[in-house]
């Protein structure tokens, strides 16, 4: 027994790696289709946007990079689809240096292609990336054009029809920050606090535990935590909009809902790892105590 326990505790970690690999790959090849339950913070984000009127302005800030895209992309794209269906005007921007611009451009290209009736510059605009997130938000609090003189391709904002009705953050109905790291916090603790603009945050799972504190303090109107939050949002969208339900069921592309299958399998594997590791550890400790008593 002791020999087996020692062997188990000293198992080459590459066997664990292989198990993790299989645990993720198999549900991708053979989807299970597990159910997703929704939480209050995601529902309040959804309902907040649902209550907006056509023509309202929503900012979606891409404050993340490829290092968290599988969690964050589905959030940003889900909210974009909801806004487009409701004819809410969407202002896209990116404040995360390492990849925010690229993901923003890719997401808007993908989602706008699903809505061929919408026009760039009238229904949505991509302001691109800007350095110095805190200063940018501060400037946007009184004048957006001071921070973003032009859109992503260099067209001056004055020449973009939908930007004529939008001067500062105070006129924006909600900022959706899809975030990894600090920039999401800046939107809440600086932009919301100083200019009053409501904020919805879509943090990575790694960042989500901290955002619960802001949620508790009423500084957020809603939150989509990690891939789970994104999957919840997809579920809410599919339930409210039949066309999106069909889309999410049939698309070949990656969705958070599909990702939850692999998440579940891996959580199971890791919980097993923890339990086996602890049982082995305790049995070894008991054996050592016994030996010491002798």
């Amino acid at each position: 027994m002791a020999g087996f326990v020692d062997k188990l505790l000293n198992l080459d970690r590459r066997w664990l790696f292989l198990l993790v690999f299989i645990g993720v790959a198999v549900p991708i090849i053979l989807p299970i289709g597990l159910p997703v339950t929704t939480t209050g913070s995601t529902r309040s984000a959804f309902e907040y946007i649902e209550a907006l009127k056509p023509g309202d302005y929503v900012i979606i800030s891409f404050d993340y990079g490829p290092s968290s895209a599988p969690e964050n992309d589905p959030m940003a794209e889900g909210i974009m689809r909801q806004c487009f269906l409701k004819r809410i005007r969407v202002v896209i921007l990116a404040l995360y240096q390492l990849g925010g611009l690229q993901l923003a451009s890719n997401s808007i290209a993908k989602v706008s292609a699903e809505f061929p009736n919408l026009k760039y510059g009238e229904d949505y605009v991509n302001l691109g990336y800007k350095d110095g997130a805190a200063a940018v938000m501060k400037r946007m609090g009184d004048d957006i054009v001071g921070a973003f003189p032009a859109d992503v391709r260099g067209t001056p904002l004055a020449q973009i029809p939908m930007m004529k009705g939008l001067r500062s953050l105070r006129q924006v109905s909600v900022v959706v920050t899809v975030a990894t790291g600090l920039i999401g916090e800046y939107w809440i603790t600086q932009a919301h606090q100083q200019s009053g603009v409501p904020v919805i945050v879509g943090p990575t799972a790694v960042g989500a535990p901290k955002y619960y504190a802001y949620l508790n303090a009423g500084q957020l109107v809603g939150m989509l935590g990690g891939m789970k939050g994104a999957a919840e949002y997809e579920k809410l969208l599919a339930a409210r909009y039949p066309e999106l339900g069909r889309f999410y069921r049939s698309t070949r592309a990656f969705t958070a809902t599909k990702g939850m299958d692999a998440q579940t399998v891996i959580h199971f594997i890791i919980i097993l790892f923890i339990l086996i590791g602890n049982v082995a550890f305790m049995s070894r400790r008991a054996a050592q105590k016994k030996a010491a008593a002798r």
Binding site: V20, S68, P70, E71, A205, G226, Q263, I270
Partner: peptide, 10 residues
């Protein structure tokens, strides 16, 4: 764990 696994899923 959830976040890191999400990346691997991607």
């Amino acid at each position: 764990v959830m976040g890191r696994v999400a990346l691997l899923i991607g």
